[in-house]
Simulated scan of single mutants.
Amino acid sequence: MTKLLLSLHVLAAIVAIGPVTAAASMFPAATRRALATGADRDVAVLRTLNRICRVYAALGIAVPLFGLFTASSLDVLGDAWLITSIALTAVAAGVLVLAVLPRQRAVLDGFGREPVEVDVKWPARLAMHTGLFNVLWAVVTVLMIVRPGSTTGA
């Protein structure tokens, strides 16, 4: 059962977090392009990237759920590396839900107005928050692989 749970946890991370990471990373550059061109096509790209982020962020809830079930079956719920991973996952989710997605929405709302009301500083701020989200997930991934103090860790 542990192998099945671990497989589901890893698959959920790849399928759910990967698209959010990629789409969120592409959004600031696409915003700059849309600001430069004003083309409907570039704004449509922004809408698609935002939709990917929203949908896969919702699916991403499966990652910590499968992770908790896996950790319970491995009897590592009290291990420091896991507690740290859980805390960093919560921070990453907070950055996504409280900073990245609302700023993406604000950018899209700005393109919905005439004249376009998008602050030129937004892409840089959005890139910063997206980068923070990505770094947090990278650290969590490393912790999951290395598992400090584990007899099976690297």
Rank of each mutant, 00 (worst) to 15 (best):
V91H: 04
V76Y: 05
V100P: 00
A34I: 10
T141S: 14
E117I: 01
L35T: 02
M26S: 11
A16S: 15
W81M: 02
A87F: 12
R47F: 03
M26L: 15
F111R: 01
R54N: 11
W137M: 11
V20N: 06
T21H: 10
A92S: 12
A12C: 10
V10G: 01
A124N: 08
A29H: 10
A44K: 11
A106E: 14
L49F: 05
L101M: 13
V91I: 15
W81H: 11
M1W: 06
E117L: 11
S25Q: 07
W122S: 06
V55R: 13
V20P: 07
E114P: 01
V139Y: 08
R51Q: 13
T48Y: 08
I17D: 02
T84H: 02
I14S: 04
V140R: 09
G94Q: 10
L101P: 02
L82V: 05
G94Y: 08
I145T: 12
R113P: 00
G60K: 11
L11G: 14
W122L: 12
I52T: 14
L46Q: 08
T141F: 14
F111N: 01
V15A: 14
L96S: 03
L35D: 01
V118D: 03
P148Y: 10
D40P: 00
L68N: 03
G110Y: 07
A34P: 07
L49Y: 02
V100N: 01
L46E: 07
A44E: 13
L74I: 01
A90D: 04
M1H: 10
W81S: 02
R47M: 09
P64S: 07
M26I: 04
P148E: 08
A90G: 10
I14W: 07
A58W: 12
T48F: 11
C53S: 15
A127E: 09
V146Q: 08
A154L: 15
V146M: 08
I52S: 04
V15C: 03
A22W: 13
M1R: 12
A62S: 13
G18C: 07
H9F: 06
D79V: 00
S73V: 02
V107N: 02
G67M: 08
R41Y: 08
V97N: 09
V45E: 12
P19W: 03
I83C: 01
R32P: 00
W122A: 09
W81F: 15
V95D: 06
V43C: 05
R54Y: 03
V120D: 10
R147I: 05
D119Q: 05
A138D: 00
N50K: 14
V120P: 08
T48H: 11
P102W: 07
L35A: 04
V116I: 14
L59D: 04
A16K: 00
A44I: 01
V146Y: 13
G60A: 13
L101I: 15
A93W: 10
F69G: 15
T2L: 15
P115M: 13
I17N: 05
V140L: 10
Y56R: 03
A24F: 08
L6D: 00
S7V: 12
A30E: 07
P102K: 09
S85G: 14
L143Q: 08
S85A: 15
T151D: 12
L49V: 04
A62Q: 06
V142F: 12
R51A: 14
